[in-house]
Simulated assay, not measured.
Amino acid sequence: MTESPGTTARELLDEARQELADTDAAIRAHPFLDRLRRGEVSTELLRALAGEQHVIISSDRRSFSQLATRFSSGLGGDFFLGMAEGEGIALGKLGTFADWLGMSSDDFRQYEPRPGAHAYPAYVAWLALNGSRTDVALAFLVNLAAWGSNCGRVAAALREVYAAPEQAVAFFEFFASPPPDFESQALAVIDEGLATGDSPLRARRAARLLQAYELMFWDAFEEPNSTIRKGEG
């Protein structure tokens, strides 16, 4: 990667998406999604998915709140505060998925996270302390498209293959379609950051790392020998 002085937010986003096209494709084509579609993911692993998301969303909510504080004087303040509020909404919707799986609040408290799944929120927390507004806004613009696509596929598989009710898939449906103004707001934050001297190279690096950690999250759910029958759960 090289520095690109004078670049715009849109140009930076296009460059990052092109550079990370292979990683994006690997996330969207992850074997976990195919196994879920075939009804081969165990109840235990679905509970692990809920447990991981509870830890991740709780962490990201605090990270976005920290970013809103760091960048409160510019466009980033409202943008990151909105992201923190979205994580709060997501936590509530995650509860209905957990209820369907028979999980309690004690199950969440006692859940032991998988290391590979938590490189992602650990890096988000690092960005909250060390990243620029451009680093974070670009990384999430690139990342949320693949995450949203996968959430849509998870919701469809849970509904169609595992007979999950609508309230049980609300968490995944929430992330499947980002707010319509998310991209325009993120681009405005990036342009503001670039105008104050944020590094395009560091921002593309942040996007690359976050996307790689997203792939590691899905890799953490490899469980080839455990199955659940269609309609069970």
Rank of each mutant, 00 (worst) to 15 (best):
V41H: 09
L127F: 02
G88M: 09
H30I: 12
L94E: 07
T134K: 00
T43I: 02
W147K: 04
G92E: 07
E112D: 05
R202L: 05
E44C: 09
D24N: 12
A206L: 03
G231N: 07
G51T: 04
G231C: 06
Y120I: 08
I56N: 08
V41I: 15
A137Y: 01
R37E: 09
D14W: 02
Y123T: 01
R133L: 09
R208Q: 12
D60N: 15
L141V: 07
F32R: 01
F171C: 00
L141R: 09
F217T: 05
T69S: 14
T43F: 00
E160S: 09
A139G: 06
M103A: 09
G95Y: 15
R202T: 06
L12C: 10
S59Y: 05
G82H: 02
Y120W: 13
A50N: 07
L36T: 07
D135H: 05
G152W: 00
F140N: 13
L67V: 03
G148Q: 06
F79M: 02
H54V: 09
G88H: 14
T69Q: 11
S72I: 13
R109F: 11
P180R: 06
A29Q: 12
Q167T: 15
Q185A: 11
A26H: 08
S65Q: 09
D22S: 15
L13K: 01
P165M: 10
W147V: 15
R205G: 15
L13W: 01
G86K: 08
R47E: 14
L33D: 01
G39D: 05
M83L: 15
L127A: 10
T23M: 12
P178N: 05
S73C: 07
R70I: 04
R38M: 11
E192Q: 08
A156Y: 05
E52H: 10
P179F: 00
S177K: 15
W147N: 09
A176E: 13
T134P: 00
A220Y: 01
Q18K: 12
L81K: 12
F172P: 00
A203D: 00
Y120E: 09
I228H: 14
I89R: 06
S149R: 12
A170L: 10
L141D: 10
S105K: 06
G197C: 02
F108D: 07
L91W: 05
N225D: 14
E222C: 03
F64H: 05
L94M: 07
E3Q: 10
G131Y: 01
L138W: 00
R10C: 10
D78W: 03
R35L: 05
G92T: 10
F32M: 07
F64W: 03
G51N: 04
L187S: 03
T69Y: 05
D219M: 04
A195Y: 06
T227F: 13
A163R: 13
E222V: 05
E214I: 07
A9V: 09
E214Y: 03
D107E: 02
Y162H: 08
I27M: 04
I190E: 04
D107W: 04
W218D: 08
F64E: 02
Q211R: 14
A90G: 08
E85G: 13
L49T: 07
S177I: 13
